[in-house]
Amino acid sequence: MILDGRIWVLDDDDINTDVIYPGKYTYEPFGPEEMAKHALEDFDPDFASKVEEGDIIVAGRNFGCGSSREQAVTSLKFAGIRAIVAESFARIYYRNAINQALVVIDCADASRFARKNKEKVHGSRARIDTENGRLEILGEEFSFVPLSGKALEIFDAGGLVEYTKRRLASS
């Protein structure tokens, strides 16, 4: 898959699922479009109104730490985010993202470059080749380890709902 999108540099480590999707909404029966309106609300209140379809997030270490709430993935996905690049991801967030077929890329070099050159990178475009593990920002090339094995199988199925559906159908 080739992705080409506008970059949001979220210049912080430990961006947790409470600031991505506040706990006060977690037991409101919101559909995904409504969830999207609150994406990153307590990190950047302007994010939800300015994000566009196809945008890409670049953030620091331990992205998505904290609560296992899956709305922290759903809200960003339905807000239009197509990929998240981070120095590292919190474990549950990473699994949740794959289970919803949202592209998540562990790439410390790209994250550090984007944060160091935040002024220029924010709003510029990233090009991502998910299969070959290549990422380009402002003409700089970075490589990452592409998904493989079970995680890739789930991602390629379109997420865990589709994957489970197929397994149930074949059993």
Partner: peptide, 9 residues
């Protein structure tokens, strides 16, 4: 710990 979709699965 796991997420909601995974729990459903």
């Amino acid at each position: 710990p796991i997420g909601r979709t995974e729990t459903a699965s």
